[in-house]
């Protein structure tokens, strides 16, 4: 009853407002969740440093625009390149030497890489929150049919969809995408086909990090506080989003991202008294999904013919 009352009490305008917020948060989660899911698809490991890659990208943008006064559009290009390199470097130094080691060792190495980045940021940039550079064009409020929204909230879903279309094209219709899918299924036989799996893995990390960088930039404009631990909570939630959608499945990660983003915003909108539990929402959804559909919403059952 309370639920329906909450809906009836809400005006169409404020409902639209919450939807826009939810969709843009969901898009951000989706962008980051794709990185988790792609790496898992190929290496069967959770790249715990992924959330911290998002954090580093925010600092890169801060230094480019605020410190070095480089125009924001040029900075963004630089941020994307630098973040892609960072992802590849992490893979080469923290994961590649453990290619033939047990899965647990790689997982621990990932946690180590995550802590290293967080503490490095703390050491280099101090723990004091910095403000993500303000970009008037994107952070201004605009009114559409009486609904006040930040321009970036409208840009985020569009950019996310564009990235998704490009990504799905690469994965499904190019030679490199084909080799990524092959490596994720059976890397031994992929080797026998003459595929250099180390290159394929590097490219996967680069793509995941590029999406994380784009996500981070939009995240920074939307939520401008930058701290060394900025990536922890979004990182966890996006990992959960990937699991909810079916880890290893790109569309699943996007679906999971939207479920979490929209759910989080709408619950707080309808039940303001629950806003303290905002972060718990993701974990509750995770538990429910794992209970009823352990492979995730779009995850495939593994069937093998012998």
């Amino acid at each position: 009853m309370e639920f329906f009352q909450a809906i009836f009490n809400m005006s169409a305008a404020s409902f639209a407002q919450h939807m826009v917020n939810g969709i843009s948060l969901g898009s951000l989660y989706a962008m980051i969740a794709i990185g988790y899911t792609m790496v898992y698809g190929i290496l069967l490991m959770i790249n715990f440093a992924h959330g911290d890659i998002v954090m580093m990208a925010c600092y890169f943008a801060f230094f480019g625009i605020t410190v070095f006064q480089i125009p924001w559009y040029l900075t963004f290009v630089g941020v994307i390149i630098a973040t892609a390199l960072l992802g590849v470097v992490i893979e080469r130094t923290a994961y590649r030497p453990l290619r033939d080691a047990p899965k647990n060792s790689v997982l621990i190495s990932a946690i180590g890489a995550s802590f290293l980045l967080e503490n490095l940021a703390n050491y280099l940039f101090s723990g004091r929150p910095l403000r993500f550079p303000n970009i008037e064009l994107l952070s201004q409020n605009i009114a559409i049919a009486g609904v006040q929204v930040q321009a970036i909230s409208l840009v985020i879903p569009v950019v996310t969809m564009l990235c998704l279309v490009v990504l799905l094209h690469i994965v499904n219709h190019t030679k490199i995408g084909m080799s990524m899918r092959a490596v994720s299924k059976d890397y031994e036989i992929a080797r026998v086909m003459g595929i250099n799996i180390d290159n394929v893995i590097s490219i996967t990390f680069a793509i995941g990090s590029i999406l994380a960088a784009i996500g981070a930039i939009m995240w920074g404009i939307r939520y401008p506080g930058i701290t060394p631990l900025l990536g922890v909570m979004p990182g966890l939630k996006c990992f959960i989003a990937a699991v909810i959608g079916g880890i290893g499945n790109i569309k699943g990660a996007v679906l999971g991202g939207f479920i979490l983003g929209l759910g989080e915003i709408l619950i707080v909108a309808f039940f303001p008294q629950l806003s303290g539990y905002r972060d718990a929402f993701a974990f509750i959804v995770l538990i429910i999904i794992l209970f009823y559909k352990p492979t995730g919403l779009l995850g495939e059952k593994t069937t093998e013919k012998v």
Binding site: M178, R181, S184, E188, I189, A190, M193, I195
Partner: peptide
């Protein structure tokens, strides 16, 4: 050990 997640044509191409 065919790539079960690839089409028949893609398996040949790979």
């Amino acid at each position: 050990r065919v790539f079960s997640n690839l089409t028949v044509l893609e398996n040949l191409k790979i």
